[in-house]
Deep mutational scan, measured.
Amino acid sequence: QIFVKTLTGKTITLEVEPSDTIENVKAKIQDKEGIPPDQQRLIFAGKQLEDGRTLSDYNIQKESTLHLVL
């Protein structure tokens, strides 16, 4: 699982696999929060994550925290 922290300070927990794409993660966030993926920007280690890449591409491991910017 990974954590996604929103600007409001809320933390969302997501069940993911390293092979999941960023697009996939955004879809999971939409399921939980109702935020359309095209409004979501995910930041990890100061980098904006691209939809077509996977979590493992960015070396995002379990218990990692991503930041969600709208």
Rank of each mutant, 00 (worst) to 15 (best):
Q1H: 14
Q1T: 15
Q1R: 14
Q1N: 10
I2G: 01
I2Y: 05
F3N: 05
V4A: 03
V4N: 01
V4G: 01
V4S: 01
V4L: 05
K5D: 04
K5V: 15
T6D: 07
T6W: 15
T6G: 06
T8R: 10
T8I: 08
G9Q: 04
G9R: 04
K10E: 08
K10T: 08
K10L: 11
T11L: 13
T11M: 11
I12Y: 06
I12M: 06
I12W: 06
I12Q: 02
I12E: 01
T13W: 07
T13A: 09
T13Q: 08
L14S: 01
L14A: 02
L14Q: 00
E15Q: 12
E15K: 08
V16M: 08
V16T: 05
E17W: 10
E17M: 12
E17P: 03
E17K: 08
E17D: 12
E17A: 09
P18E: 10
P18V: 10
P18T: 09
P18L: 14
P18N: 07
S19K: 07
S19E: 12
S19P: 03
S19A: 09
S19C: 12
S19R: 07
D20F: 06
D20G: 03
D20L: 05
T21V: 05
T21G: 03
T21Q: 04
I22H: 01
I22C: 03
I22Y: 01
E23V: 08
E23D: 08
E23R: 14
N24L: 15
V25G: 00
V25E: 00
K26Q: 02
A27D: 07
A27W: 13
A27P: 00
Q30G: 07
Q30Y: 15
Q30W: 15
D31Y: 11
D31H: 12
G34Q: 06
I35G: 02
I35N: 03
P36I: 05
P36R: 08
P36W: 06
P37Q: 10
D38W: 13
Q39Y: 09
Q40E: 02
R41G: 06
R41I: 14
R41C: 15
R41M: 14
R41E: 08
L42T: 00
L42W: 01
L42H: 00
L42K: 00
I43D: 04
F44Y: 13
F44R: 02
F44W: 09
G46A: 04
K47G: 06
K47W: 07
Q48V: 14
L49C: 05
L49Q: 00
L49T: 03
E50L: 09
E50F: 07
D51G: 07
D51L: 06
G52H: 14
G52C: 11
R53H: 11
R53L: 12
R53P: 05
L55Q: 00
L55W: 03
L55V: 08
L55S: 01
L55T: 03
L55I: 10
S56I: 08
D57E: 12
D57L: 03
D57I: 03
D57G: 04
Y58P: 00
N59T: 05
N59I: 04
I60T: 02
I60K: 01
Q61G: 12
Q61A: 11
Q61W: 07
Q61C: 08
Q61L: 11
Q61R: 09
K62T: 14
K62Q: 13
E63G: 15
E63V: 04
E63T: 07
S64V: 07
S64C: 08
T65P: 03
T65F: 08
T65G: 03
L66Q: 01
L66A: 02
H67N: 08
L68S: 02
L68G: 01
L68Q: 02
V69Y: 13
V69Q: 09
V69H: 10
V69W: 10
L70F: 11
L70H: 09
L70V: 13
